[in-house]
Amino acid sequence: MNALFSLSTTTKSRLVGAVFIIFLLIAWEVAVDLKWLKIYKFPPPSKCWEAFVELFTSGFPIEQTVDIHIGWTLWRIVQGYVLGCLLAVPLGVVIGSYSLLDKLTAPIITFGRSVAALSLLPLVIFWFGTGEAPKIAIIAYGTFWAMIAHTIAGVKFVDPLLIRAARTLEADQKFIFLHVVIPAALPRIFVGARVALGVAFMVIVGAEMIGTIQGLGALINEARNFYRADITLIGMALIGLLGLGISGVLQLLERILLPWNKGLEEVRR
């Protein structure tokens, strides 16, 4: 009891939050047991745990174990994401460097961003069929616009004071571009990378619901077809965890690549 009192308030409130969640899970289990909730609609935690084990051993649909699903989802994201970044970053740097180009393309980029990537699904299916290409294409599309918008902003809004300072140090144009403009733009480009990853992650779930049985999006949709709500729930949880994991990796990468940006990041929060 004394130990409980000496805990700080944040730890205490976290503890209370955790206890509340456990309470909800138990209540759910009991509600299904008492037949207040239908088991096929609201599979209780115990059933979800069985589904979890099933996913790891026999797989769902049969022989498609969880590593296969995660592997496919990741592989599609990586392909589409890298493709989108490879196209967007160089183009964004060029557009951001020339004010005229920036002004000419500004509305196009605003528009491109506001076209929901998923709305391209019918078109890419029409073009490429239901294989891998359409999925990668729309991930690349979503990544591209988020990335290019942030890259342009990063290059465009470099603090003019830094450029003036470099000039007084007798740096030439090319040197300034490579050693001042690009590094100064990197923090914004990384913000773009994070936003783009969020978009890519969102899109893949939708894209995988069509024309495949592999991948986490396919998993939850297939499970729905077979009325396996337990599998769907586990799939959703895995999607959430994977998303957290990927954005964690990206943050780590940012901290390693841009150690000087750490302070700034903290201030912004």
């Binding site: 969640i21 999006g217 939850i220 949709n221 499970a223 729905r224 009325y227 799939g235 965890l241």
Partner: peptide
């Protein structure tokens, strides 16, 4: 806040799209 924040933080990383199958079941 103590009761709802953890719930929200736990469900937030799931993209809303991933709720579509569950929504259809429900």
């Amino acid at each position: 806040g103590v009761l709802t924040r953890p719930l929200i933080e736990l469900t937030r990383p799931i993209p809303p799209l991933a709720w579509i199958p569950m929504a259809i079941i429900w």
